[in-house]
Nucleic acid binder design. Structure first.
Length: 422
RNA sequence: GUGGCCGUAGCUCAAGGGUGGAGCGCCAGACUGUGGCUCUGGAGGUUGCGGGUUCAAGUCCCGUCGGCCACCCCA
């Protein structure tokens, strides 16, 4: 085979795509139920949108973006995450002008030049939602409740919600200084990566899974005593609202989101079924992002949820999604005659809104019935020579095997009644 | 980007350096007008690709591409 899909990118074949359709429909239903409206932004942005939005020093921007020059010499990037582009669009179209909050959601492909692994792809898809224009902790809790309720609705019971506050520009620097002071005493004991992190971003040491770093981390100062009063109040407010909804979460001082724009709330949800790539969704507040992008300050909070990972977890949990891509009716002939009648009948059925299919090759009846079975047809309509002579059709219920002869006149209505009954 | 494991039929997998197989799926017959179950037969492969070692390579070596695992990072 000469050509394959590009590394880390995948075809979604009919055996899978029906699951995507089901999930997407459920996601849209949920989002609309929560008052979110869809936004579709281009897959490409000027590279600066991500450099300034996500942050120059982040791994995403430093080494994971698909960046290239267009024919006019401008640097463009395939979007590696959703929020920066949404905020760019919000600012560009002044969406806040007609009142706040503005609640937006998207289902979109994202691109990161990572080394592919199960649950980690160079093109993946996220369902994300953002509430812009309000700093209120109720918005944090509301936007987080959406994916949590969605996962519960799908039957995922064992999701772990982790919650943290990463502070803001007023208090985070004090905490970072405290971390430097603490880890500075143990530099020799840190792994090489963490020695690097010590200089670049000591917060990241908290994420390290190396045993020796992890031990030190357990004794490290947490951010909580360093939070300013505003951040403290906000964090308590988020917890209070989640409590009101009965949503369980773990306060986890060690989650540090890898995008620079996060302030205050940081949340991640994991599933043990995913191996190392175990984050199902992540999100948080980003009150500084809009001004980073050159706009007025616009507070915002949101999340992004990986659809591939959601599907993987559903599979691991043995949760079957309802499949609805079968046909209602299969029109069969006896092979030699009735081609024209069958072709016309199919057309009429389709115009009448039935899902109908047939065998374009008019193989022998046995083969056609086999095809009807494989297509999941609920009824087979057999137009044999005898039936045609009588102006009738044989209608077979594929599940029960019961058959009856019905006049061609009014056949579609008769079928519709039988289909609706079951 | 680092380290490791693995690429054989559409799918899941066998084959100790010596003529590449099975199950499922597909097509057909048993059943000349009836699917699912059963039985029988058939089609389908330059063993990912390129090079090397050897009388001989799916098997050993190197490279490359791809998948997976861990790291990194994250969804």
């Amino acid at each position: 085979m000469k050509y394959r899909a590009v590394r880390g990118m995948h075809d979604i074949l009919p055996e899978e795509s029906w699951k995507w359709q089901y999930l997407e429909e459920k996601i849209r239903t949920f989002a609309h139920r929560y008052g979110f409206r869809e936004i579709r932004t281009p897959m490409l942005e000027y590279t600066e949108v991500f450099q300034r939005g996500v942050g120059e020093g982040t791994d995403i921007v430093e080494k994971e973006m698909y960046t290239f020059l267009d024919r006019g010499g401008r640097s463009l990037s395939l979007r590696p995450e959703g929020t920066a582009a949404v905020v760019r669009a919000y600012l560009e179209h002044n969406l806040g002008a007609s009142g706040t909050p503005v609640k937006l959601y998207y289902i979109a492909p994202l691109f990161r030049y990572d080394r592919p692994q199960r649950g980690r792809y160079r093109q993946h898809h996220q369902f994300g939602a953002e509430i812009l224009g309000t700093p209120d902790p109720a918005a944090d809790a509301e936007v987080l409740s959406l994916p949590i309720r969605l996962m519960q609705d799908l039957g995922l019971r064992e999701v772990e919600v982790h919650l943290n506050s990463v502070g803001d520009a007023a208090c985070r620097p004090r905490y970072i200084a405290a971390l430097r002071e603490y880890f500075g005493r143990y530099l020799d004991e840190l792994c090489p990566d963490c020695r690097r992190r010590y200089d670049v971003n000591p917060l990241r040491i908290l994420d390290c899974k190396e045993e020796r770093c992890h031990r030190l981390t357990r004794e490290a100062p947490t951010i909580f005593p360093y939070l300013c009063q505003e951040c403290r109040n906000h964090f308590e407010g988020v917890q209070e609202h989640l409590d009101w909804l009965g949503i369980r979460y773990t306060i986890d001082p060690f989650i540090v989101r890898g995008l620079d724009y996060y302030t205050r709330t940081a949340a991640e949800v994991y599933s043990g079924k995913l191996g190392a790539q175990n984050a199902m969704f992540g999100g948080g507040r980003y009150d500084g992002l809009a001004s980073q992008l050159g706009g007025p300050p616009v507070p915002g909070v949101g999340f992004g949820m990986g659809i591939e990972r959601l599907l993987l977890v559903l599979e691991e949990e043995g949760i079957a999604l309802p499949r609805e891509d079968g046909v209602d009716v299969f029109v069969a002939t006896t092979g030699k005659t009735g081609h024209r009648e069958a072709f016309q009948l199919l057309d009429q059925m389709r115009q009448a809104g039935l899902r109908a299919d047939g065998d374009p090759s008019h193989r022998e009846l046995r083969a056609q019935m086999k095809l009807a079975n494989r297509l999941g047809a609920r009824y087979a309509v057999i137009l044999g020579e005898e039936e045609l002579r009588l102006g009738m059709a044989t209608v077979r219920n594929m599940a029960s095997g019961d058959q009856e002869r019905l006049p061609l006149e009014g056949l579609i209505e008769a079928l519709r009644e039988r289909i609706q009954k079951t």
